[in-house]
Simulated assay, not measured.
Amino acid sequence: MPDVLIAGAGPAGWALAAHCARLGLQTTVVAPHPLRPWRATYGLWGDELAMLPPDVTAAEPVVVRAFTNKPHIIARRYAILSNERLLAALTKNVTAVTGKVVRIGPDSVDLLDGRTFRAKTVVNAMGSRGGTAEQTAYGVIVDEQTAAPVVTAGEAVFMDWRSAHNTFLYAMPLGGGRVLLEETSLARRPALDFRTLRQALAQRLAPHGIDIDAPAVERVRFPLDVPRPKHNRVLPFGAAAGFVHPAAGYSVGEAFRLAPRIAAAIAGGDNAWRALWPVRARVVHRLRWWGLEALLSLSATETRQFFELFFDLPPDAQRGYLSGRDDPAATAAAMLSIFRRASGRLRLVCAKSVITGIRNVNIK
């Protein structure tokens, strides 16, 4: 019987598995395809890369730009992960079991084929469930020469809001001369469908002579407003534990940052739930939830105004809001700075949405 059994083979599940194994815990990961490289594109901020094994990035653009009503340079390093190299680095000394999980208990997991696996600690890393506000994206992968009119070699576009659809372009090098051109709906309730996103991408790229009928396509869809899980005997991790940033969609960085802490708690017989959601992290999550409600209320013009104010923030303030999971002061300071510099109309929309968010959270 293993010490730790992790249901789910995404980056979060494997990150925790790797750290558990390094601490000498017998660790098993179970999923339908536990060793298949992930299909999604994952990006991390440069200051988060120290949490990962070495040499697992596929591309690190020299310049990262953003566009609202004016261009911005993001003064923070950004990198795209190599899913194949990262997975290979994480799977050492971990047992992989192929099977579909149909039930997760505090000390056992049942599979669709009738098998049951037992462990001292069971972790649910199977992703988030529920939620009504979603982030969706539709992208195509093209070569650098094709993408050059939009993003030149060695550069990246983190967000380009110059669109009437209230969506942005995410243009990232993937390594090997490939570039992802992806139209993204940051947050919608209900979600913006892939057909509309594809049309928006085609309209954006048509003036540059870029045809979106590429053989390699990426589709992204996940909920943003999933509540924090209630305490029970099955430990969640990753998106299943509510790691998704409600107003930005990032979660992989949080999983890699917390994996050593949670693995140490499991190995030491401590209460891992306390390490998942300390009080400061719960406060930040509530603030971010209000930020999500604000974004959901903005028109395309107001969204550009909002992000123009955001990208004008000092780099430390941007980092505090995007990555400061347990820093309420940094999160609140960034939000207040934007609010103070916003127009009267934008202030009113944000204030109303925050009130709505408070009511919705209290109802839940």
Rank of each mutant, 00 (worst) to 15 (best):
F117D: 00
L296V: 15
E302N: 02
N166R: 14
R39Y: 00
I73G: 01
L52P: 04
K352Q: 10
Q203P: 01
A214N: 08
A75N: 12
V123F: 04
P190G: 06
V97G: 03
C350V: 15
R39T: 04
A330H: 01
D211A: 12
R341L: 13
L49C: 12
F311G: 02
Y42T: 15
L23I: 15
A191T: 13
N362Y: 11
I74L: 15
L201T: 13
L276S: 07
P236K: 08
A202T: 15
W277M: 11
D107K: 05
A133G: 04
V252N: 00
L287D: 09
Q305F: 06
A191L: 09
F311W: 11
V234Q: 01
L287C: 10
A96I: 02
C20H: 11
R65N: 12
V349G: 00
K92P: 07
V122S: 01
L292P: 11
V63Y: 13
A137I: 04
V30E: 02
L224V: 14
I266Y: 02
A21T: 10
T98W: 03
L224T: 08
F311V: 03
G10N: 00
A333E: 10
P54K: 07
L295K: 14
A21C: 10
R36I: 02
Q26W: 01
E48F: 10
P207W: 00
L197K: 03
W45G: 14
N360P: 00
I73D: 03
D193N: 15
A156K: 04
E254N: 12
F256M: 10
Q318V: 05
L49H: 09
I104D: 01
T68L: 11
G13Y: 02
L235C: 09
L23T: 14
E144L: 05
A300Y: 05
F67K: 07
G139N: 13
R228T: 00
S82C: 12
A156S: 13
R341S: 15
P71C: 07
S185R: 02
V64G: 07
G242C: 09
F168K: 03
I141L: 10
G99L: 09
P223Y: 13
F158I: 11
T152N: 12
P314S: 04
H208C: 13
Q203Y: 04
A40V: 14
A148T: 14
D47Q: 08
G99M: 11
V151Y: 02
L276G: 07
G175R: 11
V220C: 06
